[in-house]
Design a protein around this nucleic acid. Sequence first.
RNA 1: GGCGCGGUAGCUCAGCUGGUUAGAGCGCGUGAUUCAUAAUCCCGAGGUCGGGAGUUCAAGUCUCCCCCGCGCUACCA
Length: 707
Amino acid sequence: MKSSKRYLLTSALPYANGALHLGHLAGAYLPADVYARYLRLRGRDIVFVCGSDEHGAAITMRAKKEGINPQEIIDKYHTLNKSTFEKLGISFDYYHRTSSDLHKQTAQEFFLKLYEQGDQFEEHTSAQYYDEEFDQFLADRYIKGTCPKCGYEEAYGDQCENCGSALSPTELINPVSTISGNNPVLRETKHWYFKLDKHEEWLREWIADGTINGKVHHDAKAWKKHVVGQCLSWLDSGLQPRSITRDLDWGIPVPLPDAEGKVLYVWFDAPIGYISATKQWALDNDKNWEDYWKGGDDLELIHFIGKDNIVFHCIVFPAMLQAHGEYNLPINVPANQFLNFEGQKFSKSRGWGIEQHEYLEAFRDFPNKEDALRYALIRNMPENRDSDFKWDEFIDFHDKELADNLGNFLNRISVLTVKYYEGAVPLAGSRWPAPLAEVGTLLDKWVEELEGFSFKAACQLVMEISSAGNTFLQDVSPWKIWKDDPENQQVKDCLFSCLQIAGLLSIIISPFTPATAEKIRTILGLPTLQNGDLELAIQSWKDQLPLLPSGHLIGEPEILFAKINNKKDTSLLAIVEKQKEQLQVILEEESQKEQAPLKELINFDDFSKLDLRTGTIISSEKVPKANKLLKLEVDLGFEKRTIVSGIAEYFEADKIVGKRVLLVANLAPRKLKGIESQGMILMAENEKGELGFVSPPEGWPEGFPVR
RNA sequence: GGCGCGGUAGCUCAGCUGGUUAGAGCGCGUGAUUCAUAAUCCCGAGGUCGGGAGUUCAAGUCUCCCCCGCGCUACCA
């Protein structure tokens, strides 16, 4: 590992349309921060950037709905997210925003560079809906209409929320602009497409082998399996040109003369935000941004993201960078999987989960709340598969590892040092007591895990080192010896060694819990950590030189972490319990949720239009290439019907033959997967979406009407 | 339906290119200890490595089939 290397770390740009929850933190920000802090402690030359992603139709949509300016939305969430990251100790060197002038200029330049090459883009003209009153093209989401598939009248131009079908706006029946309420007209519009397909071949080689034209770029085996797997799967299904412009008035104008009213698609400009953030940082710190983006072999670019962003950061953005020609490609994209919350997915609408700023607020009276959270999330990080955040585990990690193991160790040795030696580090008999060599082995492993982005394992190693300290202290039991012989050398050696271990802990825990690290430093009478301190410590350990020399005066013993499970003081437990109760309330409310509201009244004529009949299923088979469909033959007595029914998830085909059913016999026929369905089976559906047959009374034959 | 990733002790997970009696933490059971935040330390009990077949001298690790979970995608109420 050359120390001359420069590192550029990025965390996924949060969309400035909402607050971030613990899953985001565990997925993209904490791991990057851990790594950034680690590299700084090793004295490496690094920049860690992030920023708010502030363009896109979703923000303008919301602004429209709430009757405010998009600027208000992005200002609100940019400020909120930026300050929350700061409070949680996410140590970005720069937190930028894509609405800045510098970003606009950077993104436009990038676009133009590709445009001028002539072979990276293609133009397509197509007919899209246009709102004549507001004089603008309508993004898919701005159009509502009747779903051609299920008849739902409030379907959006990209998707019907009733039946879930993916739609294109031109499929909608009676399309209506959501801004004016008028029917939009079709108008020709031109868009630019990035020819991603051109890049397929080198991308495959780059991802599968880590080489470009046979030249080694990175170690392909160092990439996470799920990252490589997902990318190769995408490449195998073939890349398509991607549209990179939109008709919108919110975003970065396409810098071409014939592009009035067009902006860069948010997915195109967002990753360029990494570049503009670096530029702004460089301007403010008198550096050259190009050293971190165009650094050749001495540069490591690393993107920290969640798994939802894999394809974008491993295929699309690298293709953009490569097409541009001057930029380095990422050396790794250690994407994390998803974090669940008490066994279920985070859900804003359900209120399931806790957002970062809500946590800080709810835990405002909780000491070390930032580090407690960071620690629990790191120990639970979804590095290779989805993981689960539980409050009970939060308590366990806090009490058993931070308080009992680490905090107590520190308290034990600081109290003993003060009591026996008035706070001065004793003189060791042998130069480097044996236990310290064992710790050195653990330290090597710790470095290895961090370098391989295994933060969970590295974090556990910190505890192992603390444990090693406890074990050693227990083995020697200096309090027993000291009673009879206060000047005993074994006692001095023991505390000397333990103090060295504590000194090391104050450094190696810093990437995970930076505030705690400083507290430990204070207790040990050590100065605030500086960049490069870890490098020095590793060297000292190798050279068998103490971090706390004999005679060094430590500070006052202090409780590092007050336990949550404390019989005398239940205030901390109460804070956590409150969170658990809130979840309980949500679950209870949902379980007794009212039934769906009744539909509007119909009259008798409406009802009599339905022709419901009794029948029997006489054959049943699964429809190929469909998960939910069964093809049924139903006997009505006077005739047999073919009915395609979406019940395959709940019933096996051969087990429902002979089933007595009710059906709608006069429903207009419709083709499903090429089979004409001539009616519909009546099913009851519960809150979980499970289906059950509604059957005629015992002994009733086929074909009778139901009224 | 297609593709990707996962399924290892009660729980959470580690096990690189196949190689001695499958590991850690928590929990559980014992014992020791009191410097310390009723903390700490020792020892122990727990696993047909999702199921089945195969390749091999040897498989948790490779191949095939099946089952389950998550994600993407297609289709669909």
